[in-house]
Nucleic acid binder design. Structure first.
Lengths: 216, 216
DNA sequence: TAGATTGTTAATCGATTAACAATC
DNA sequence: TAGATTGTTAATCGATTAACAATC
């Protein structure tokens, strides 16, 4: 294992490894080789071994990888066992949908509170999560020190809300606002750009038939 | 302009170009050089010119790019002017949130219908979109021929629903089910893996302080 | 015209894949 | 032991950046 910079490409593959290992683990499979995992995932065995070698030596020659152990290792690398505190800021349709559908716990986060401005929502509970007024944000953060905030507020207040969260000690923002946020170094923003995602699909279905025409 | 294979890296940058150009266009800015656009976006001017050159020659020496024209070109490349038909399959919390918040029209799609199994939802309207029973899917597709389906159904029925949609002529699936779908070639799946996205954030906030400790 | 900026070719950099000695 | 498979080094491939002639 070489102590080195971990590239973004490697980091973005880790959750996928974790997902596959979790599934194999749930199925009760005990061991797997880089070769057969690669076949399942549609990537090369070399890439898997190369990626894992950034973090340690988790396999055994002639045997492969123990799934339970490797799953735990990858989970540890991703930080799922750190049980970071998380808050949802903005409990509109999207925030509501995430609170209802998304399993924050199995991604290694703890949450008990969402924030919103709407008096109609404040005091109610979604999937066991209490909705508080945004004016309680300062007190809550001072007490609980959430590490991550899910930003599902309207675009117009995205940047100011992000700055406010960062000033309260939040270090990671899961950004659904379709705005590119400006943040200081040491703060991490993970964007979920719905429009960008859908547009790549638009490109592919638009470009594909053209390619057919060209080759005919 | 070289007729060539367009790499995934280039395709994924196109929507971001489009977003920036759209914003500049809305502000009324007339022209921009690859250099100043690159500064704004945090990428090199070379990369912008290289990317655009995959599709044509849109600039002018000594001047740069006309924003209105380039925005239209990039939009055209992405297929936003094709007004593809789109349906939403699954009108639960997430489907509902997308129907309420997401501007399908400005991404170049037309939609009038979502499908669900819940009798409580069927017949109602969300943001002008009618919710029909999933049993009407065949008739609707035969009549309208949607090119893209937004898949927001429960994980358990994701694969079978995808297969059904493909058999009805859908060529692109915007997949929110957190399942990796198996599809034939010529069909495009764009995954929105919430868990993968959040886990990269978990990694970064977990790894960052460790790096600090190491260097101290 | 002179300055600016393109599109493209060449150089560099980084990521992926292949190969293989080590060893379970 | 013999076969399998690792971790790592080397080779290849592709993507990014730099350089520059062309030209508006």
């Amino acid at each position: 294992m070489k102590r080195q910079h971990i590239s973004d490409a490697v980091i973005r593959r880790l959750p996928r490894y974790y997902r596959y290992l979790d599934e194999l683990h749930a199925k009760g499979v005990v061991r797997i080789s880089s070769n057969s995992l690669g076949k399942r995932m549609g990537i090369t065995a070399s890439q898997i071994r190369q990626d894992l070698s950034c973090f340690g030596e988790f396999g055994q020659q002639g045997y492969g990888y123990n799934i339970t152990a490797l799953r735990a290792e990858v989970g540890h690398i991703l930080g799922v066992d750190e049980k970071h505190r998380l808050i949802v800021v903005g409990a509109g349709h999207l925030g509501h949908a995430l609170l209802q559908n998304f399993d924050f716990v199995s991604s290694g986060f703890r949450l008990d509170t969402a924030f919103d401005v709407s008096p109609a929502l404040i005091g109610s509970t979604i999937n066991g999560v209490l909705i508080r007024g945004i004016n309680e944000l300062e007190d809550y953060c001072a007490a609980v020190h959430p590490a991550v905030a899910v930003l599902t507020v309207p675009k117009a207040v995205a940047q100011e809300t992000a700055a406010r969260l960062i000033s309260l000690g939040v270090r990671g923002i899961w950004n659904f606002t379709n705005m590119e946020l400006t943040v200081e170094s040491g703060i991490f923003v993970e964007d979920v750009h719905f429009a960008d995602s859908l547009l790549t699909l638009s490109y592919r279905i638009s470009a594909a038939p053209q390619l057919e025409k060209e080759s005919s």
